[in-house]
Design a binder for these strands. Structure first.
Lengths: 210, 210, 210, 210
DNA sequence: GATGAATGAGTATTCATTCAT
DNA sequence: CATGAATGAATACTCATTCAT
């Protein structure tokens, strides 16, 4: 049979990952059967094994894709002109706009990361990326005199990451949480800590955003 | 064997809960077999079923006990003289002193709470307790003039909870995180937001916020 | 502790047998647990084992009691003045008046008799008794000139037993069967075969039942 | 392995049903393990579940197949030229020729029919078929003047069914019963009740019974 | 490459039975 | 004698994985 093109292969993988994500978020890794995933992806039971060596590998694949997306978003933040604004947009995207199952999946993955080395690697890798991106962003903004944080970036970055973790977790498991209100409150707190942009810079900002 | 006293019954349950907690934290709910738990508790395979109707019920039992402990800690905070200090002590206890498996377990429980209604109930219940305790604490401190938060308690409490969630999650899954440093940074940020404290500092505050 | 009197002991056994009968008829031997039986008898789980060595022994005990009752009924038939009448009364008692669970139990026991030697013994024993009683009854009635069967007693008795078996089984498993109609039809057929009571007795019967 | 043809699928089911029948008749439904059945059918432990949803479903499958066979036999009787002869042949087939385990199984199924709705349905369905076939047969024979029953078909049919039930049960659980003798006696009784035969034979029979 | 039937190890749960009190 | 907690062997059923077609 004709070998599938790379594009087709990638499409097959994506389709299985999508199906698996849905199923895993719905029932958890262990309560989800390979048969369910195959059904959701509308392929046969054996088909998944052409693209993933095992269920574990499928989980790892999901972690890798999910975390890669995450890392990319934070690298974008590092380049954004207004840090707080970019951070808020990113938070809103992940916590409000993305479908809920993505967040549930993240908690599942977090739990799994303590046992599945491949998943743990994905988490470590994205953590490093996020940390570095945030550091870079903060340092640039400080250097530019746009913020004056109440603590040095090296201490502030872990705090930002904890805030993100908490926002994610809370939103994933507490259906009563109001994400917009939470983001607003967190950003307000954050602006306190990042420090009001010094008075002398206001003009600049005022110029850009009248 | 005549009926066990209530104390003895409770002891049997505790022993099983302890064993289950260990095993669950080690391998996750689904990869842990009832046989393992029984072995860890040094009882027979069937013994668990004398005290818990099912594995699910055992998980729910763990959630209930864990969350109850948590709620109690926060009720204590509400009565403490110095809010920030009490909060910090509580954080340090849960995030530094308690054995690591309790934290891993909490992530596991969080993931499970989206599927197991009994676990979800435990989470909702402790959330309510924590929220109310924090509200009470903040309002008392504000009334006493010991803090002057940058935002009303009703907005601050969710922020505090998200901070706690994040601290917990980060500490549970990131072995590289330095909990003491994190707590210190978070408390510093918090003190910024809670506003400068005691009377001897009031003049300063009065100066800043007339 | 004071040894129970024989009467008390017998009462305990009867109570357990009654409970077991109910449970067994309701769910079958194997789906019934010793715990259910104990609960139904309002004794503890271990109590049954004071009076019966095992579940199997309990089943055998039920078979023995049930079949003994049956054998006694047929011995009475052998002594009755009017054979057909006595037979009909016996059929009506077992098939109409006795509680339905006794019949369901009998089917259960019949199935079990192919596997449980003690139960099989009970069945063989009652079969012998019934056969002999019927033989005796038929021969006496023939000798007395009250019946003139279309076939010799040695051939008729097995037929009667098959009729009884069928009546019992049908009534046990077919809720739509009308037992009174069935008995009437069977008796009518039987009277055909038993032969009309000789002419000289007709007046007597006619006198009794005008 | 691509999808099996319908024939192959049916063959797989038949093989499992055969194995299950043997095992069930040998040890009863509940004492038979799915592993035993699989071994008897020379397939793996999980294979049964590809074709039957559960043990219960397997039992129901046996009941359906067994009863279907039974119903077909009786429909054939309805078409036979000589009713009594056909009935006798059918009885002989089921009670003498078929392997003993089929009869033991029927008692087992009868007991189960009071608890397993699918089995009960099979019994009800075959009962209806048998009843209708017998009715049709009797009415045709009566109309043709070949029999003159001592009671109307509507009363005779239930009697015939009870006779069949009894014959089956007796033969299933009483190893001492002589099936040929039983059938002969029952048929003799039956011929009494069905009444004198065709006109052209009347002289002979009339000679015997003036 | 795709299919889905087949495998068989693995597991939660049940339950007859025991026995310390 | 009675209790009911404890035992541990037994079993229906599941499911990741394989592989013949």
């Amino acid at each position: 049979m004709p070998r599938l093109s790379d594009d087709q292969q990638a499409a097959r993988r994506e389709r299985l990952l999508d199906a698996a994500e849905l199923c895993f978020a719905r029932s958890g890794f262990h309560a989800t059967t390979m048969a369910e995933i195959a059904r959701e992806a509308r392929v046969s039971a054996g088909a998944a094994y052409v693209w993933f060596a095992s269920k574990e590998d499928l989980i790892a694949g999901i972690a890798a894709r999910d975390r890669a997306r995450f890392a990319a978003d934070f690298e974008a933040i590092a380049e954004a002109p207004d840090f707080a604004e970019a951070l808020e947009a990113c938070a809103r995207f992940h916590v409000v706009e993305r479908p809920a199952h993505k967040r549930r999946l993240m908690v599942e993955l977090a739990a799994e990361s303590t046992r599945n080395e491949a998943v743990a690697r994905s988490f470590r890798s994205v953590d490093r990326t996020v940390r570095e991106s945030l550091m870079r962003a903060l340092e640039r903004q400080v250097a530019a005199g746009r913020i004056a944080p109440a603590m040095p970036p090296a201490r502030l970055v872990p705090v930002l990451m904890v805030l993100g973790d908490g926002l994610f977790l809370r939103r994933a498991i507490d259906p009563a949480a109001d994400p917009e209100a939470l983001i607003a409150s967190l950003m307000e707190m954050l602006r306190h800590v990042l420090g009001p942009a010094p008075a002398r810079k206001r003009r600049k900002r005022g110029a850009r955003r009248p």
